[in-house]
Each structure stands twice: as structure tokens, then as C-alpha cells.
Nucleic acid binder design. Structure first.
Length: 465
RNA sequence: GGUCCCUUCGUCUAUCGGUUAGGACACAUGGUUUUCAUCCAUGAAAGAGGGGUUCGAUUCCCCUAGGGACCGCCA
């Protein structure tokens, strides 16, 4: 058995979206499950549209979610000469031919096909024509001599056996008239030279696979194994595109989705292992297989992404959570001041209870981070004279205690409730508002203890008008 | 239009001929609670339709309907 090698081969012509990330994840998991190799190949042969910024975005996205390629990135444009050589070889051994059709001629054919509502397929005009008839003013393209008779069978690890009539595959161009190779040629040659054993990709590539298989056959190369996975659809049921909002990883990290959570979500989107929902990195490698991939496309569901993220927030180690929060705040909000980091770390215990995202935790911890409180005007109305009296009584009472802990604070609150003939809300709500600026938030004891005596007194003394 | 693929609760899915069709998210209700949450319990919710094959079909086959992908000198 050859050592398993997979690859993810995006073109840097746009930002990588979440569907591509899932394809990369599946390739990576499959290779790691088989103790194999996973390559990243940047297909940058479209010089017009390829951009370094997209290449960087792709590499960073994969890094962020924890999909790591073995070895350096493979840059396809550096291998163009190899591709051209194979084209020449195919030409020499009769599997390809020069096509002297002009651009206009082809366009005309397409237009006519459209009018007649028949599918356009190149008419193979130059397949058997002698080069002696070639026009002198046209630079030829090189076309692959595709099979005309019979059928081809793709034994797909996800889709099963797929059989098509060979005559539906046209004589596709492998070398443009400027001498550069096209996708199907380059991809085949690279996959062969990189010893790729399993090609896992979106099922939008299925037709390409039949073309690429013919190149393999013509070159007498051993075929790799193919697995075409269903695409991810938007909530509307269409193929995910770069134009859709919430399609790149940055869209998710911006709102405080963590890489582990998104990785877990993506893994379970279109793949399952019994009833198991939560997979850490090791488990996902251990259990991943191609059999678990479903055949139907699946829709993106934000509420599930959120709940997965919530699960990871609640269950991960608090030191790790703090590290993620801290990095998140620095990247997307404001850096957590050094003097506040300990308090926040210690408060994660309760801050995380009401958070689905890192952004939620950040919002919940604003009362700690910000020294000056922005009061909500509606909430402020709840601070009437009675409330002000309670606040001031509370302030006097806590002056008498040294250590802020629940055992010390509880009697004070209880007494205030009794002496003012009110309930917990009557005391807790004014305190919460004056200490945090909001009616909602952590438990009142958590707030008081996290802020500490000095800060609490400072905030209680602020004049509410 | 041609080729290919798909079809189980709203969503992601389990089932590999015999189940009260299971789980998770979301939703609803109730309970706990110190606001908001968390947490716990309960509930509602599905085999696209029609034919076969079979003692028995969600499961196998065919047809119909619906959805999707591809149809570039892009990748």
C-alpha cells in the first residue's frame, strides 16, 4: 500500500470560504487518520486574478482552524514547465492535437448552440485535420483527444459508481494559444507528481475528474482514488459563494467564534459518527472516515455554530479560554489592560455562563474593563430616592467589613431587604445598575466580589441625578 | 436545454428489510435560581408522491415531482 497523501488545492483568486475550509478539513483528517500526508497546493496559474493577499488569507485561515499542511505550500505556477512537457508528450503520442479555431469561431459556435438550446460542445474540427490546412494567422491551442465511444466509470468513495457517456466530454484545451497550461492538465500533472493517493473535493469537480482520469490513462499513470463531497449550501439552498455574508472564517472570528468550535461544527456538517456530536482534535482524527459522509448537500445553520461555540466556551479550560478572549479583544475590540487581566481571568467562571461568543464575554466583562460607566437612561430611572438610600446604606455597611466574600456580604444584603421592607430585587437591582450600568448581568455577589472593595465604594459614591 | 448528483423532524443527522423511526441544535412548556442566563425535566416535530419486489419496506428497483452541481483559452 502506498502511503496516503491528500491535498487541498485552492486558487488564490478570492478569499477562502467556509466550504473550502471544510474540504481542506476533510482532506487533512483523512490523511491524518491514515497516518498520511496532507499538502496545500496554491493553484495560481491564473495570473490575472491570483493575488498574494488571497494566498495569505487562505494560509492564515487554515492555520487558524488548525488544519496544518505537511511541508511548504506547493506553488503551482512554479511547475508550469512540467505541465507543458506533459502536453507535448500527449501531442507526440497522439492523445492531443492542435486546434486552429479562432476565438471568434468558437464564440460563434457557442452562440449558435445557445440559440438552438442544445448544449455546446466543441465540434472536434481539428481532431483529424492535417496541419497543412492550418491558417497561418491563428496560434493553435492544444486539445486533449477525449474518448468518443463507450462510457467511463468513476468509482467514487462517497458517490459510489458514476458512469457517463464519453461523448459528453469534449476535447478540452490543455494548452492555451499563449502556451500556458489549463487547470485540468496542471492539476493532473501535479497530483501525479506529488503522489496524491486520494482526491477529496467538492462534487462541482466531478466533470473535471472524468477529464483528469483520461489524462492519467493516456499517460499510463496509476489513478488516484476520488471522493466527491456534497457542497455546502446557504440557508436558501444555493451553492455557497464568496459573495455570501458570513462565508469567510474572519466573519466568524470577528464575532468571537472559536476555531475549535467551528472545526467541530464543520466536521459534523455532512459527516457523522453514530450519535456523537463533540469531537476534539484527536477524536476527529481517530474517527474520521469517508463512509460517514452523506450524499446530500447541507445547509449552514448559524444557531448551531453558536451553540457549538457556547459548548466550547463552557467546557474548555479557563486559562485557554482567557488566552482566546485576550487575543480576540486585542484583534477586534480593545486590548484588556494588564491590571484587569487577573480580575477577568478569575471572573470567567461566571462571565462565561451567559455567553455564546467571545464577544458576549467581552460585553459581559465591560463593567470590569471600563472604569467609567455608561448608564442606560431607562435603567437610571429605576434609581429613585428610595433606591439611593439603599445604595448609601449598603455603602456604609460594607465599610465595616474587610474581606469581600459571599459569607460577609450576604447578611448585609439580607438586612437591607428586611429593614427596607422589600425583596431581593429591591436591593439587588439598584446595586447592579449603579455598579455596572445595566439591569442585566452577573449575580450581584459576583459583581461585588469581582470589583473589590475600593472599586465598589468608588462606584457607589457616584452621584446619580 | 444536456449530463450527473441528491431527497428522514425547521436544521445537522442515526437507521445498513422487522424500531413506539433515535440523537443534537432551534422551538414550546414547566421547575431550580438573585435580574438576564445557566442547569434540569417535559413536549411538539420527519421518511416528497406513485408504482413494484417481499411475509414485511424509510431501507432494494422503476417512474414522477422538487432541489442542486457542471456545461470557460477560470480554477
Amino acid at each position: 500500500m502506498k502511503k496516503v497523501a491528500t491535498r487541498f488545492a485552492p486558487s488564490p483568486t478570492g478569499p477562502l470560504h467556509i466550504g473550502g475550509v471544510r474540504t481542506a478539513l476533510f482532506n487533512w483528517l483523512y490523511s491524518k487518520n491514515k497516518s498520511g500526508t496532507f499538502y496545500l497546493r496554491i493553484e495560481d496559474t491564473d495570473k490575472e486574478r491570483s493575488k498574494d493577499e488571497y494566498k495569505d488569507q487562505i494560509i492564515n485561515s487554515l492555520k487558524w482552524i488548525g488544519v496544518e499542511n505537511d511541508g511548504d505550500e506547493y506553488i503551482q505556477s512554479k511547475k508550469i514547465n512540467d505541465h507543458i512537457n506533459i502536453a507535448k508528450e500527449l501531442l507526440k503520442n497522439g492523445h492531443a492535437y492542435k486546434c486552429y479555431c479562432s476565438n471568434e469561431e468558437i464564440e460563434e459556435q457557442k452562440k449558435r448552440a445557445k440559440q438552438k438550446k442544445v448544449p455546446y460542445i466543441y465540434d472536434r474540427k481539428w481532431r483529424d485535420k492535417s496541419e497543412a490546412e492550418a491558417p497561418i494567422n491563428v496560434k493553435p491551442t492544444i486539445r486533449f483527444k477525449s474518448k468518443i465511444d463507450g462510457t467511463s466509470l468513476l468509482k467514487d468513495l462517497v458517490q459510489g459508481d458514476v458512469e457517463i457517456e464519453n461523448n459528453t466530454i469534449e476535447d478540452f484545451i490543455i494548452l492555451r494559444n499563449d502556451g500556458t497550461p489549463t487547470y485540468n492538465l496542471s492539476a493532473s500533472v501535479d497530483d501525479y507528481q506529488m503522489n496524491i493517493t486520494h482526491i477529496i473535493r467538492g462534487d462541482d469537480h466531478k466533470i473535471n475528474t472524468f477529464k483528469q482520469m483520461q489524462i492519467y490513462l493516456a499517460m499510463k499513470w496509476d489513478l488516484p482514488t476520488f471522493a466527491h463531497i456534497p457542497l455546502i449550501h446557504t440557508a436558501e439552498g444555493k451553492k455557497l459563494s464568496k459573495r455570501d455574508k458570513a462565508s469567510t472564517l474572519d466573519d466568524y472570528s470577528t464575532i468571537g467564534i472559536m476555531p475549535e468550535a467551528l472545526r467541530n461544527y464543520l466536521l459534523r456538517l455532512g459527516w457523522s459518527y453514530k450519535d456523537k456530536e463533540i469531537f476534539n482534535k484527536e477524536e476527529s482524527i481517530k474517527y474520521f472516515n469517508l463512509e460517514g459522509i452523506g450524499k446530500s448537500p447541507s445547509k449552514l445553520d448559524m444557531s448551531r455554530i453558536l451553540s457549538m461555540n457556547e459548548h466550547y466556551i463552557k467546557n474548555m479550560d479557563e486559562n485557554d479560554l482567557y488566552d482566546q478572549l485576550s487575543a480576540y479583544c486585542e484583534n477586534y475590540k480593545h486590548k484588556i489592560p494588564n491590571e484587569k487581566s487577573e480580575i477577568i481571568k478569575n471572573s470567567l467562571r461566571f462571565l462565561k455562563n451567559k455567553a455564546k461568543t467571545l464577544e458576549d464575554i467581552y460585553n459581559n466583562s465591560k463593567y470590569i474593563i471600563n472604569d467609567v460607566i455608561n448608564f442606560n437612561q431607562e435603567d437610571l430611572k429605576l434609581i429613585d430616592d428610595n433606591a439611593k438610600r439603599i445604595i448609601s446604606e449598603f455603602s456604609n455597611n460594607i465599610n465595616k467589613i474587610d474581606e469581600f466574600k459571599r459569607d460577609n456580604l450576604e447578611p448585609i444584603i439580607e438586612n437591607l431587604i428586611k429593614s427596607n421592607n422589600t425583596n431581593f430585587k429591591g436591593v439587588g437591582q439598584p446595586l447592579r445598575i449603579v455598579l455596572t450600568g445595566s439591569k442585566f448581568g452577573p449575580g450581584i455577589y459576583d459583581i461585588i466580589i469581582s470589583l473589590g472593595k475600593d472599586e465598589v465604594q468608588k462606584r457607589l459614591s457616584v452621584q446619580i441625578s
